[in-house]
């Protein structure tokens, strides 16, 4: 993510023996990541081109794109991909709308509680998706807080079904991704000079105009970075759809897991994994291009 920070670091002129030192410093980590990450990815891709005999539950060595064809020709699977993309887009939009005010307040506050605000935002990130899903289960269950409160107030008679629906999944993933969006936006807004906003105000711009003409364009790099991060995370969500969506609700990441563990169909599971990665990266690149064309205009 901060590859740019790496690339712009101070650079010193070359001295004798430096090449050797540099290699000794960098080689162990590089070799480790190559063996433990690149090689496995290469193997997974190779597996995704293999055949699978369903009757014997056995993988047969081959070079075929049958698994990829199977995914895109079966409406069952394309529907799951469609659901995943749709949910990811909705979640990302909701995170941007909900996250911007919080990011702005966090960036601009002079309060000594700023660190507390940041810790409260970061803490849930580290608590794990399963635990946070548990919280939503307590709220949305049939005897949960939400239904018990509404019934107590006499607003409804029967509990509303939220658990194990798409609604629960969307609500859950928004809560998971919101901190990432907030932290990304906050760091960018912080780097925008407060004086620019004041200038817009003193020239008579109402707050909304200031936001639209000054803050939004200046914060665009952060908005783009946060949106992309949020979208990628939503596309790959596993624990939240698994726990809040129930067994009948399907998204891509649980589907990969299911193909590997329940069906033992490694070639097809591998193919779905690569389709998930490619679609995510592809949509991200398209969004980037559209944005850059707009910015160039």
């Amino acid at each position: 993510m901060s590859a740019t920070a790496v690339a712009t670091g101070p650079v010193v002129e070359k001295r004798r023996g430096e090449g050797l030192t540099a290699t000794a410093l960098l080689a162990p980590a590089t070799i480790f990541v190559a063996i433990c990450l690149l090689a496995p990815l290469a193997y997974l891709f190779r597996y995704s081109l293999n055949d699978f005999v369903a009757t014997k539950k056995m993988m047969v060595e081959a070079v075929t794109i049958a698994n990829y064809v199977k995914f895109f020709t079966d409406p069952y699977y394309t529907a799951i991909l469609g659901t995943t993309v749709r949910i990811a887009v909705m979640v990302t939009a909701a995170c941007l709308v909900l996250g911007f005010p919080l990011a702005y307040v966090m960036a601009r506050t002079q309060s000594r509680f700023k660190n507390v605000l940041i810790i409260l935002t970061v803490l849930p990130l580290f608590v794990g998706n399963a635990v946070r899903s548990a919280g939503w289960m307590v709220i949305f269950g049939n005897k949960g807080f939400f239904n018990a409160s509404l019934q107590g107030l006499g607003l409804i008679e029967k509990p509303i079904e939220i658990m194990y629906t798409e609604k629960a999944v969307i609500i859950g993933i928004i809560a998971v991704n919101l901190p990432f969006m907030v932290l990304t936006l906050q760091s960018v807004i912080e780097s925008i000079d407060r004086a620019v906003e004041e200038a817009a105000f003193s020239l008579g711009a109402p707050p909304l105009t200031m936001f639209r003409r000054v803050l939004w364009p200046l914060a665009m790099p952060g908005i783009l970075a946060g949106t992309i991060l949020c979208f990628i995370l939503a596309m790959n969500a596993y624990a939240t759809p698994f726990l809040l969506g129930g067994p009948l609700f399907k998204m891509m990441a649980p589907l990969v897991y299911n193909q590997f563990t329940q069906q033992a169909n490694w070639p097809f599971g591998g193919a779905i994994a690569f389709i998930l990665m490619s679609v995510t990266l592809g949509l991200t690149l398209i969004a980037n291009l559209i944005f850059q064309r707009k910015a160039a205009r």
Binding site: G99, L117, L120, T121, L123, G135, W136, I139
Partner: peptide, 16 residues
């Protein structure tokens, strides 16, 4: 609006 977003983030943890 900021408070609402923060509450949303923390709500599941509070209930747990």
């Amino acid at each position: 609006a900021a408070g609402l977003a923060l509450a949303y983030i923390l709500l599941p943890l509070i209930f747990v």
